[in-house]
C-alpha cells in the first residue's frame, strides 16, 4: 500500500523541482522503478530526488492529468487489438486536451505529453494522447494528413501510383 501523504521530489530536464504525492507517481512505471532502485522501503520517502527527462511545463500537464486520474485502477488494463479505438476518450480528458488548442504550438504540446507519457511509462496518459492524435488524422485525405503532421512525401511518382492503385478500392 502507498500512503497518500508520502511525497516524492522530481527534478525536471530544465532544472526545476516538483514535489508530488506517491499517490500520483504510482501511475508512472519509470518513477516507481527509480524509487525501488534507490533501495528504500516501498512506502518510504526516497532520500534523493528522481530525475525525469521531461521539462517543467510538460511535467505540470502530466501532474494535472495524474491528479484527475489518481484513483484509476492499476495495473492499467491491456487492450486487445479489437478494443483499440479512438472514440472513447473521457470528457475530462477531452477538455484537458482542448485547452491546448488555444496555444500556437498545441501540436508540439501534444507531442511533448506523448513523449513524457512514454518516458515516464504512464500507460493511461499514453493511451489517451495517442487516441487524441489519431482523432486528428481520422477521416482526412493523404494530403490533409501530410499537412496536419507536417510531413513531406518521400515517394517516387511510380511508388505513389502503385499505392494509389492499392488504395483505390477504399477511395471510391
Amino acid at each position: 500500500r502507498i500512503y497518500p501523504l508520502m511525497r516524492v521530489t522530481l527534478t525536471t530536464s530544465d532544472g526545476a523541482s516538483v514535489t508530488v504525492s506517491r499517490q500520483l507517481t504510482k501511475h508512472s512505471g519509470f518513477i516507481e522503478k527509480a524509487i525501488t532502485d534507490m533501495a528504500v522501503d516501498d512506502n518510504a520517502v526516497p532520500l534523493s530526488a528522481v530525475a525525469v527527462d521531461v521539462d517543467d511545463a510538460t511535467l505540470k500537464l502530466v501532474i494535472e492529468w495524474l491528479t484527475e486520474h489518481r484513483d484509476d485502477a492499476l495495473p492499467y488494463p491491456e487492450k486487445t487489438d479489437e478494443e483499440r479505438r479512438a472514440d472513447d476518450i473521457p470528457a475530462w480528458d477531452q477538455a484537458f486536451v482542448q485547452k491546448w488548442d488555444t496555444k500556437e504550438d498545441q501540436q508540439q504540446t501534444l507531442y511533448a505529453v506523448i513523449t513524457a507519457a512514454d518516458k515516464l511509462d504512464i500507460k493511461g496518459l499514453l493511451d489517451m494522447t495517442c487516441k487524441t492524435l489519431a482523432n486528428k488524422i481520422n477521416g482526412k485525405t493523404v494530403e490533409e494528413m501530410r499537412e496536419i503532421l507536417q510531413l513531406e512525401c518521400d515517394f517516387t511518382e511510380e511508388e505513389l501510383a502503385e499505392i494509389r492503385k492499392e488504395n483505390a478500392w477504399c477511395e471510391n
Binding site: 487489438d81 483499440r84 479505438r85 479512438a86 507531442y111 506523448i114 513523449t115 512514454d118 499514453l126 493511451d127 495517442c130 487516441k131 492524435l133 489519431a134 488524422i137 481520422n138 477521416g139 482526412k140 485525405t141 493523404v142 494528413m145 501530410r146 503532421l149 507536417q150 510531413l151 513531406e152 512525401c153 518521400d154 515517394f155 505513389l160 499505392i163 494509389r164 492499392e166 488504395n167 477504399c170
Partner: peptide, 29 residues
C-alpha cells in the same frame, strides 16, 4: 515532428486509426 517518435509510439497511433484511415496513412511517406 511526428517522425521523431520511436516506432512503438507511431504504432500506438496507427493502431487507433480506422481501417480506411490506416490505408491513407500508409500513403503519407
Amino acid at each position: 515532428a511526428l517522425l521523431a517518435f520511436p516506432d512503438e509510439i507511431l504504432l500506438e497511433i496507427i493502431e487507433r486509426l480506422s481501417f480506411t484511415d490506416r490505408l491513407q496513412m500508409r500513403a503519407v511517406n
